[in-house]
Design a protein around this nucleic acid. Structure first.
Lengths: 331, 331
DNA sequence: CCTGATTGTGCATACGCATACAGTGGCTCG
DNA sequence: CGAGCCACTGTATGCGTATGCACAATCAGG
């Protein structure tokens, strides 16, 4: 391994001078910087991240904590977050809520992370209060937790859901069902509550038997749609907690030959790339997931660099994308 | 930040004793270990990964280098690889071939990686020879490079493609087209060459005009299918480089109202979870992508722990999964 | 009771880099 | 021509952990 000492020897300077030259310290002469750069080039030297992190007291590693990487939603979060962090000179370390693993605060320390992006469904294994007590800055992505304040990037479901529901009511839908996310998750609850209040404005409500709950995954949507269809007399429109869940529901309908939107309409939330496929054409509430993820990256980095700025709650708007899965109700 | 010194003070021992107690060193008495563990527990101490990495001279961080995280294929690689590495006590750091970035060997040093998994389409920015010269072990995942030997995990396309092609020939297909991957990539070339030789056995060949090439992405498949259809008189079966490409082709057909498999049959390669959806039902050559990714993780770790073992080339088999997109040729 | 082995612990140090501080040389200006 | 200043570079040190080595304590055997 080639170290700054080797470069120093070749360039005929001391090791600290190498460090200063390569970090473009103003008190190093141009001539020396040039010599050092050439020596570094010749030896193929690049500073060791470990040594540097130890020396400056913090790393440039940001953890992304997600529930399940197999889930398309989380998978789509990774790329933009990673891209933005890389552009800012930070690295992304993946962390999942594995069953047997240590609690997050310990894992943050063990990984030498300077900050964490939280985008898990539940906070059970996260213990944000302990994270805060250890002084690890973190950012909520697509969720919040009132008990422990932090920067957050979320989405306001209201405009999108309003456009969706009002156009559905216009089409004639009166009996609306839903497969919402897990109870007591901020994202799930917000969507459910907003849906109910918009329907209420129009004198409608969700029948208790038409509302199901479950994790934000394909299986939940598949099972939910199956339940609603098997029972006979299903709602004319079924809302889903997000696109992954909706795709589960849509596929369940297709599997049993129930035409969408002929016999039942389906709506999602997120607008994942898959949802726009000609084979899918999912009507959904859209927002810029990439922008949300990149925003989270920027918040994280800003917080690391200036820990005492006031907390920021960034909220992105939503809109309704009408594709092929919502039509008029079956008569 | 709580360090091993704090634990030492509380437990009434020296810092090195804390280190030894927590790594279960045989020369530390059980009583001391217990006291140290309790002190560590009380203070919420966990060893700092940076300090440890610096001290032992190597980290437990493995880089995954992929072309494009947005691509479903690479996205599906991440989860199993991450899971396996985590179980082995290693972390996963994502690295993409960003345009402006430094060449990989420098970035490996900069990230303090102990090893790298290479799963990129091209090796242009990778410079595996320089990686080897720096002594960074690496593993090829789903590709190889004859010029620089290394551990690899790949897939043997032969059994799957043979089953696919022979069943297609059986169905009556004689005019077969293909949208293959980029030229001079090991994966793309292997699939193309195997396809040609199997067809040859049956006295068939790919017409030059029916063969297209392009990156392993949705757009390639979409454009390829569009080209073949627009030209009139398309092949009766189109092979695609992988499922992501095939999904592009399938969607292009659906968009222009060309029925699959009624007017044209479509086959992929990989069997991503999406391919099995009721909405998609892509006929494809399947293998266990999760197992391949996990195998790569194990190879990487084995190589880090014992650098001088003989190189291993692990090859996984393939099989044909006949779903709904391959039927008899249009007459 | 002494010797030698064995066990348990502390001391010193190394890893690679960054940075506060000290020091050297050249230059300017009086 | 000398005092003072500035620009530049070297010296010393610290970050948190692991580990070779020395040393103390205990014990067994003769």
């Amino acid at each position: 391994m080639v170290t700054s000492r080797d470069v120093a020897r070749l360039a005929g300077v001391s090791q600290p001078t190498v460090s200063r030259a390569l970090t473009d310290h103003p008190r190093v002469s141009e001539a020396t910087k040039k010599r050092v750069r050439e020596a570094a080039q010749a030896l193929g030297y690049s500073p060791d991240a470990i040594g540097r992190a130890l020396s400056v007291g913090r790393s440039t590693r940001v953890g992304l904590v997600v529930t399940d990487l197999e889930n398309q939603f989380y998978a789509h979060l990774v790329a933009p977050l990673h891209g933005e962090l890389e552009a800012l000179g930070y690295e992304l370390v993946l962390i999942t809520e594995s069953a047997g693993g240590a609690p997050l605060p310990e894992r943050v320390a063990a990984h030498g992370l300077c900050s964490v992006v939280l985008s898990t469904t539940t906070l059970d294994s996260i213990q944000p209060a302990r994270l805060r007590d250890r002084g690890v800055p973190f950012v909520y992505l697509n969720r919040t937790a009132p008990s422990v304040a932090a920067d957050s990037v979320t989405v306001d479901p209201e405009p999108g859901l309003r456009a969706l529901l009002e156009s559905a009511i216009e089409l004639g839908h009166r009996r609306i069902g839903a497969v919402f996310g897990p109870r007591n998750t901020s994202t799930g609850e917000a969507r459910e509550q907003v849906t109910r209040s918009i329907l209420d404005e129009h004198g409608l409500q969700l029948a208790h038997r038409d509302v199901l709950h479950g994790p934000f995954d394909f299986a939940t949507g598949h099972a939910g749609m199956t339940t609603l269809l098997d029972r006979g007399d299903p709602p004319t429109l079924v809302l889903f907690a997000n696109d992954v869940v909706a795709l589960g529901g849509l596929n369940a309908a297709v599997e049993r030959g129930v035409s969408v939107p002929g016999e039942v309409s389906v709506a999602g939330f997120d607008d994942l790339p898959t949802s726009g496929w000609a084979l899918v054409r999912l009507s959904t509430v859209a927002y810029d997931l990439d922008a949300v993820a990149r925003e989270a990256a920027r918040l994280v980095v800003a917080r690391v660099q200036s820990p005492d700025e006031p907390l920021r709650q960034v909220v992105h708007p939503t809109r309704y994308v009408a594709r092929a899965t919502v039509g008029p109700p079956r008569v």
